[in-house]
Design a protein around this nucleic acid. Sequence first.
DNA 1: TCACTAATGCGACAACTGTTGCGTTAAGAT
DNA 2: ATCTTAACGCAACAGTTGTCGCATTAGTGA
Lengths: 224, 224
Amino acid sequence: MSSPTPASPNPAAPPQPGADAHAAAGRRPGGRTARVRAQVLAAVRDQLVEHGFDELTVDAVAARAGVHRTTVYRRWRDVGGLLADVLDAAGGDDWRPADTGSLEGDLAALNDEVYAALTGDPPITTALIAASFRSEEAARALTRFWEDRYDRCEIVVRRAVRRGEIPAATAARSLLIASTAPLYHQLVLFRVPPDPGLAGQAAHAAALAATAGAFAGNPASGPT
Amino acid sequence: MSSPTPASPNPAAPPQPGADAHAAAGRRPGGRTARVRAQVLAAVRDQLVEHGFDELTVDAVAARAGVHRTTVYRRWRDVGGLLADVLDAAGGDDWRPADTGSLEGDLAALNDEVYAALTGDPPITTALIAASFRSEEAARALTRFWEDRYDRCEIVVRRAVRRGEIPAATAARSLLIASTAPLYHQLVLFRVPPDPGLAGQAAHAAALAATAGAFAGNPASGPT
DNA sequence: TCACTAATGCGACAACTGTTGCGTTAAGAT
DNA sequence: ATCTTAACGCAACAGTTGTCGCATTAGTGA
């Protein structure tokens, strides 16, 4: 997760996001509906920033947005639905991985961003992960978000191949996961105290392993 | 996580596990208290197996255990406390990593166990991870459990060093995390559809990286 | 301008969650 | 055998969560 801050909240709000929040553009995407959605999503972010995930209840969001409880329940179902919508709005940015000139440098830069996202205050990213364990909808939104982010990261591997650092048949996704997973593992699951040194290690090891051909396979989509 | 099934539920039950479930051995560890604890913990496991984490409520556990709601609330506080106690009871087993004769084999065997735990039905392990995001107490218990497991796994690295497979100054913990984290990452956070092939990959890459000296550092406790 | 209707507001409601005070039971000690 | 008291059972309670039917508002199109 790199920049979950949504710069431009999508003004179109489907009335029934239960199935898919993006399928139909809504039968009435006009003024009030869009305004309510903007107010509610802003309220979610503000509430999250000011009081954390524990106090992110539907009631609190509705009150802060100046909207009735039932409206929020009907359109977003629960807190997970709210966060899923926030997350989808955040996925529409133009983020790209940094280009440092070397594979290890690129991976380290990625991990630095992951580190910042996971240890940042307010802990928005951690809150989203936590929410994904409470709501299937939030889980799907998070999966979509990460899928998109890792897709964008594959250029890091392609650049390294072009520079001759690693074999052409390197499984990009596997390499990227091997590089970032240890950081998530320690910060999210182990909850080790934050230490900026964590970020560089895995990047180094992954780059070395890639050089040694540990991720040989289909260059586009490795063995899952 | 490898074998969360508690073979022998600790009969000693501290009355106030709020602060630390193991500090004082309780002033009255006798028959009834221990019996209630055993009933409740068994009810937690049964409820989890039969109805999953979503229906694991304090009320359901109390009813199934034949115990009053208030008793559960007072001794375990919430569902997280219940799972933390279950988890602590599970950590007292005699699990050891398999010895296959090679580093990559040992790591692959580890990942096979992780895979089985994360994809097993009922999803006890996943439920515990989910609970750790709702309850600080469950989170601490999970950290303790994993810390203990990874400690026991370090012998895998020491054996590899003894066989001359990897440098003596290999950071055992870093290697182990690099080996297992990708699997957790994909199954727990990404929620990719289960695929037994996932388990072997990371083990292979980690073993290769270790051989190349990617985890050079303090052999006992690597750079965090 | 006017009718249509999707979306929202409103209040009531049941279900669930967690707490408190007090009486009862039974483990541990003398 | 008897006493002490930690732990439990019980009932009542307030607060929260989520749902429902119906009234009202405000985009949308004629």
